[in-house]
């Protein structure tokens, strides 16, 4: 195992981590502020990817596609909040899960009806295409580096937004005591719509960025959604900082586990078995991580223990 390989794998872990953060940030904000479990967050990720692919195909510009993904997901999010989600705040979590699960089905079939079942083409823009050399003799995809950069920018922007702006103060106040800020004259309905649209836009952005190197297809959001839930449980529900740390932990654990475990087992058994056992265990690793974190800190790393 060379240093170059290790560096590349750590970068891969970081890239997965920051994308999970962009997904999980919206999810944790929505849960923290509104107390809502939104299973349809993965559908907004898909909406972003499809909007990006469709606009990029029509105009030939990836950047217009990226802007479209933000706009489409934010608008879809706002509409969904006003039409459906608003009625669910006072209901218990089971009703929310049922209703947002229904939204997943509606979005998936709606997208299939509009775009068909076959994956759409979306490719990396020429300026970010190809690989750059790494110290130590390796090389790394420029686009993945750009994803890491974009994810860190989003994280910085969110910290500023939550910590330094009026909207951020209201969001934090909403998390702490929603009746009180409503009584203080803040339009809580509008605040909720804005938070939901912001979370949706982040999911759409992640969908567009990741869809470019993966595959833009119906159902792409659900696997990511599961990982995003793991992230917010590890990080502590409602905490942006927790989501960030949790996402990086999950990204790096998953990537390095998939890479190192088969090698580790290879030292004690033959290569073929080691691969099978190692891969099986690697796919469980993040859930083991989640279980360990919950045993040590039941509220998550940065959550308020209840």
């Amino acid at each position: 195992m060379s240093a170059a390989l290790l560096i590349e794998q750590v970068l891969n872990g970081l890239q997965l981590g920051v994308m999970l953060f962009v997904m999980a940030a919206g999810l944790t904000l929505i849960f923290g502020v509104m107390g809502l479990i939104n299973l349809a967050h993965g559908s907004l990720y898909m909406v972003g990817a499809f909007a990006c692919a469709a606009v990029a195909a029509a105009t030939g510009s990836f950047w217009l596609g990226l802007a479209a993904s933000l706009a489409a997901a934010a608008i879809t999010g706002a509409i969904v909040e006003i039409v459906v989600i608003r009625r669910l705040y006072s209901r218990d979590h089971l009703d929310q899960v049922l209703a947002t699960f229904a939204l997943i089905l509606i979005f998936s079939e709606g997208t299939r009806w509009l775009f068909g079942s076959f994956p759409l083409y979306l490719d990396v823009p020429p300026i970010l295409s190809g690989a750059v050399p790494l110290p130590g003799g390796g090389a790394y995809s420029l686009y993945r580096l750009a994803i890491i950069g974009a994810g860190i920018l989003v994280a910085a922007g969110l910290f500023l937004l939550i910590g330094r702006t009026r909207l951020g103060i209201r969001i934090r106040a909403g998390e702490a005591d929603r009746e009180m800020i409503a009584a203080l004259g803040v339009d809580i309905g509008r605040l909720y719509t804005m938070v939901f649209a912001l979370g949706a836009a982040l999911a759409g952005f992640a969908g567009a960025l990741v869809g470019t190197i993966q595959s833009v297809q119906v159902g792409m959001g659900e696997p990511v959604l599961i990982l995003a839930f793991v992230v917010i449980v590890i990080g502590g529900i409602g905490s942006i900082k927790g989501a960030f740390i949790g996402a990086l932990l999950v990204g790096i654990t998953d990537t390095l586990g998939r890479f190192l475990l088969p090698i580790a087992f290879g030292t004690v058994m033959n290569a073929s078995d080691a691969t099978a056992v190692g891969s099986a265990l690697a796919s469980m690793l993040i859930y083991i991580l989640m279980a360990v974190v919950l045993v040590v800190r039941p509220g998550g790393l940065y959550g308020t223990a209840t």
């Binding site: 195992m1 060379s2 170059a4 390989l5 590349e8 794998q9 891969n12 890239q15 997965l16 390796g138 090389a139 995809s141 993945r144 990741v210 190197i213 993966q214 595959s215 792409m220 696997p223 990537t255 998939r258 890479f259 088969p262 290569a271 073929s272 691969t275 099978a276 891969s279 796919s283």
Partner: peptide, 24 residues
Amino acid sequence: ELAGEVYTQLGQTDYAAEIAQIRA
């Protein structure tokens, strides 16, 4: 000879870790 043998998860969408192993 085999340079490496890897099983991925069914439905996996990110192959960065495997591609790094292929490169190395």
